[in-house]
Amino acid sequence: MATVELTFSALPAHVRTARLVATAIARRTGVEESLLDEVRLAVGEACSRAVEAHRAHCPGEPIRIELKDDSGRFEVTVSDQAPSDEIKQEQPLDLGMLSDSFMSGFGIAVIAGLADDVEVFPSPKGMRIRMSWPAATNGHAPI
């Protein structure tokens, strides 16, 4: 099992870096090219949500990403330290209800729509989003 860990301060500019790192490691791990856009978007969503949460609650604390090549799966876990009670909504869309708070839940909805396997663990001490995609069993993409 190979693991890469990345921590970054809660600045929007770093989210792009996190996306790029995750996509590069996903490619190296053997995730299919057709899934790389999904990895990029899902990791970006998780990191954006974490950055916004930290900026509201604990701007000085870092956000942590763990990227693992584990038994034929590429697994990404994004952990923040901001208290959360994340909303889960499945309702017909009405423009009037698309308030900023509703839109903040869109990130999770997008991740759920993209990742092959997602678990969200909200807690008063922070949220952990774990997601994974199928990867090459030997953990290395063809060169």
Partner: peptide, 19 residues
Amino acid sequence: DFLDSTGLGVLVGGLKRVR
């Protein structure tokens, strides 16, 4: 090249304003 939910939020905000 890339659009995330933050971008969607901006477009929805714009739509609400013009409507």
